[in-house]
């Protein structure tokens, strides 16, 4: 008699490989993958922060700091290599995006999200969920804050697209 085990390894067997007319995804169907964001460009946005810090006009400081972060986030989202098949490219883009996300304070999130279009909001949500998978110190709490703010804009629809889209972060 079969032994009742808790092993779930059988779920990972790829049964489709034995089916000769298994579904194969068209590679050329999807948007051509960008090479990923330019790390130097994004870091220059993040690092330009101290220079403005000593400026006289406080309103100007806040504005430009916010502007730099917005540009950094928009750059990583615009160049997100979601369609790339190179895991290294995707991983480095993920690390860079997380670096940007974690350096933005919770009070600035809403203003920055308001500058993004719906596609960018969806991509941001994908990176937030991907970020949950590789927690570092205090990152999850900060990402939960992001999640809260992005959810307020994108609704459950953006979470659905994290689940359904083939182009993952």
């Amino acid at each position: 008699m079969a032994k009742n085990t808790s092993s779930s390894a059988f779920r990972k067997i790829d049964v489709d490989q034995f089916n000769e007319d298994a579904f194969k995804e068209d590679e050329q169907d999807f948007r051509s993958p960008p090479a990923g964001p330019d790390e130097n460009e994004v870091m220059s946005f993040l690092n330009s922060y101290p220079f403005y810090f000593w400026s006289w006009y406080s309103s100007f400081i806040v504005h430009s700091v916010l502007g730099k972060y917005t540009e950094a986030l928009q750059t990583v989202l615009r160049n997100a290599p979601l369609g790339s098949r190179n895991q290294q490219v995707k991983d480095s883009a993920l690390n860079l995006t997380l670096k940007v996300l974690l350096s933005i304070k919770s009070s600035q999130m809403e203003d920055i999200i308001s500058t993004l279009d719906t596609d960018m909001v969806d991509i941001l949500m994908k990176y937030i969920y991907r970020g949950f998978e590789i927690p570092s110190e205090r990152s999850s709490g900060h990402l939960l804050l992001w999640h809260d703010k992005v959810y307020a804009v994108g609704g459950v629809g953006s979470i659905m697209r994290v689940l359904t889209d083939r182009q993952k972060a």
Binding site: F30, L82, T164, D165
Partner: peptide, 10 residues
């Protein structure tokens, strides 16, 4: 037609 350029959704 493709449903989405991000490739998703039955």
């Amino acid at each position: 037609f493709h449903n989405s350029s991000f490739g998703g959704g039955w």
